[in-house]
């Protein structure tokens, strides 16, 4: 546990809407409970099927291992299918917080906790009082993975490339050379299903 250790923050770009409502058919007659999508599930779907990252890349971008990413991705697919098949509303909300360097883990009671005073170190578990605590480096205690993914946005007119930044869609970037709306490099797909 080195004091200089800083895990890159996980990128979670909030969805631009809060959900979807079905319409037509029997949509109005159904009064069923909405399906709740977690932010992380939304993010997984967006990175994989909208930004066309592989599961490995998307997991790295979210700071989770590939198996964890695959599980989140499977969950969002299942939920969307259920919403479609049953004509249910979708609400996008909440979800797990990604652990970064400010989270600690207690080896005694197993809890995770943050430490709201940024300039001091936590000394004991706020739940059980144990001193057996450690920085939690990632959700599953797995080795950190690089969040650098060598993907880029490109200009369809002059071909200029720019590094892609997660959370900012390429089509909101304007080419500095010719003012064209830029696009995502879509060479990669989700090959790890």
């Amino acid at each position: 546990m080195s004091p200089s250790f800083k895990r890159p923050r996980k990128i979670l770009s909030p969805p631009i809407i809060k959900g979807f409502k079905p319409f037509g058919g029997e949509a109005d007659k159904h009064n069923s409970e909405p399906i709740l999508l977690l932010f992380e599930e939304y993010e997984a779907l967006r990175l994989c099927d909208y930004d066309m990252l592989t599961h490995h890349q998307a997991g790295a971008a979210m700071g989770v291992s590939r198996p964890t990413f695959t599980r989140i991705y499977a969950s969002v697919r299942q939920k969307l299918a259920q919403a479609f098949a049953e004509g249910r509303q979708i609400i996008i909300e909440g979800g797990k917080v990604y652990f970064d360097s400010e989270w600690y883990h207690c080896n005694q009671c197993g809890c995770y906790f943050n430490h709201p005073e940024p300039h001091t170190k936590a000394r004991q578990c706020p739940l059980c009082g144990s001193h057996e605590i450690a920085f939690s480096e990632s959700e599953n205690g797995l080795a950190e993975e690089s969040t650098e993914v060598d993907d880029f946005c490109f200009c369809p007119t002059c071909g200029r490339k720019a590094k892609h930044h997660y959370g900012s869609p390429c089509n909101q970037m304007i080419c500095p050379d010719c003012n064209t709306q830029m696009r995502r490099n879509r060479m990669r797909g989700c090959k790890n299903r």
Partner: peptide, 24 residues
């Protein structure tokens, strides 16, 4: 003490210096 906190909730509580404890 809870099992999960949303991103928005976490930032709201961080600002108010409320400590979060997660039991998975």
């Amino acid at each position: 003490i809870s099992g999960e906190f949303g991103v928005k909730v976490k930032s709201l509580l961080d600002r108010r210096q409320v400590q979060l404890i997660l039991l998975k």
